[in-house]
Structures are given as structure tokens and as C-alpha cells.
């Protein structure tokens, strides 16, 4: 699915990531941990081509990210659902319209997917907020809306950057259950988090691997978690 080979990323002359090797197999579940500022977000951004590696290779669905045309990048992103740390929306459109935006831009018939959308809104607990505008949402609501938008296309890969950062434990558990369920349906999941409780909770439900970023390098964390 997504493969990094000796990938490095440097910004302003200093390397943030060095010689990163990672292979996300179909149906795998990975956590990415590490102290803040260790490059978790940068690594995720390499995985959905918001950044290109300054050395080494990033392969997305078998294609080298560096040689992909802009339209191929767009097509690949429809197969990757992303939950950003700072969830951004189109502030003049309602929550429901924002969540269905990926359907819109890929030319799918929104009316045909209306049932899915309502179900999804109910699942993330935003059914009553469907017609609200994004600026009216709380931090937790924004994060849930972002998750809904990330999964509406039923993507093959789901990448989430601190998806539980702004929400309470109960909602975090619900989000995790959704991600676990998606993983059981065969989706590949990669979550960056520093919430060890979340990782423990996930490990009880699914076979998850934990990756740790340490001093610019990526390591497989031990079984101590």
C-alpha cells in the first residue's frame, strides 16, 4: 500500500527524518509514537504526498510519489482518508456538505450516498449538527467531523494525526472502535498519537504494531506497551 524506502526529509538544511523504512501492508494497523516535534506529522505527510522525500523513495499504491502526475496524486488521495491534527474545513459549507466533499470532488452522486452520510453522521455523534457551520463546532466535534470526512470514500488506507487529541475518553474509545472496525473490513490504518492508553486499549481489540520515532529514525517499539 504505502512503502517508504530509505526516505529522508530535510527542511531548511536540517534533516527531520533520516533513512526511514516502513511498509504498510494491506489490512495492517499501526500506531506511530514519539515525543512531540519528533517528526510524526512530517512522516504522515510523506504518506499522503503533501510532502515529497528529499532522499530515498515513497511508494504509494506501487507508484513512486515523486514521479506521479498531479492528477494521479489526486486519484491516490481518494484512496487515502486523512484526519489532520488541525482539521480544516470549508467554513461556508455545512458540516454535512464538508463531510461529503470527497464524494463531490470525485464526481460521485451524493444523493445515492445520502444513507451512508446520515449513518456516518450518527456514528460520529454529529447528526444534530449536520447543518451547523464548521466554525460553530467544538474542537472535539471538528475532529469527529474530520474522521467522518476521511472515511466517507471508504478508503483503503486511513491516516490519522492525533485523532483523539481534543476529545474525551469516551469519544476516543468510540473513534477507536470505528477505526478498528474499518481495519477488520480490510482497511490499512496508521495513527499518530502520544496517548499510550489509547494504544493499550487498541491492542486489546486488534493486532496493532507500534512504531516509534526517535532521533529522526523510525524504530519498531518493543512489547512493553
Amino acid at each position: 500500500m504505502i512503502e517508504l524506502a530509505h526516505a529522508a526529509f530535510a527542511y531548511g538544511g536540517s534533516e527531520i527524518l533520516t533513512d526511514v523504512n516502513l511498509r504498510l501492508a494491506p489490512g495492517s494497523f499501526h500506531f506511530l509514537t514519539g515525543p512531540s516535534g519528533s517528526g510524526k506529522t512530517t512522516l504522515l505527510r510523506l504518506c499522503f504526498m503533501e510532502l515529497l522525500p528529499t532522499a530515498g523513495h515513497v511508494m504509494i499504491f506501487g507508484q513512486d510519489a515523486r514521479s506521479m502526475t498531479r492528477d494521479r496524486v489526486a486519484a491516490a488521495r481518494r484512496r487515502i482518508g486523512v484526519v489532520h491534527q488541525d482539521c480544516q474545513f470549508l467554513d461556508h459549507l455545512s458540516v454535512a456538505e464538508n463531510i461529503s466533499l470527497p464524494l463531490d470532488v470525485s464526481g460521485r452522486d451524493i444523493e445515492a450516498e445520502r444513507g451512508n452520510l446520515d449513518e456516518l453522521l450518527a456514528w460520529v455523534g454529529l447528526a444534530s449538527r449536520a447543518h451547523a457551520l464548521p466554525p460553530q463546532l467544538s474542537g472535539g466535534e471538528r475532529q469527529r467531523a474530520a474522521l467522518a470526512r476521511a472515511v466517507i470514500m471508504s478508503p483503503e488506507v486511513i491516516i490519522a494525526d492525533e485523532p483523539t487529541g481534543n476529545i474525551d475518553w469516551d469519544m476516543a474509545q468510540r473513534l477507536l472502535r470505528l477505526l478498528v472496525e474499518l481495519n477488520r473490513m480490510g482497511k490499512t490504518v496508521l495513527i499518530a498519537t502520544h496517548d499510550l492508553n489509547l494504544i493499550r486499549s487498541a491492542k486489546a481489540q486488534v493486532q496493532a504494531r507500534v512504531l516509534r520515532l526517535h532521533r529522526r529514525h523510525l524504530q519498531l517499539a518493543g512489547a512493553d506497551l
Binding site: D71, A74, R77, R78, V82, F89, L90, L101, V105
Partner: peptide
């Protein structure tokens, strides 16, 4: 600019 970057990240093509 924000609208454009959001659209790009949810998979919109340049043409769209």
C-alpha cells in the same frame, strides 16, 4: 488558499 488546500487534500484534481 485554504479552500484550495482542503480541496486538494480530499482528492480534488486541478481541473475541478
Amino acid at each position: 488558499a485554504t479552500v484550495i488546500s482542503v480541496l486538494r487534500l480530499v482528492g480534488a484534481t486541478d481541473a475541478y
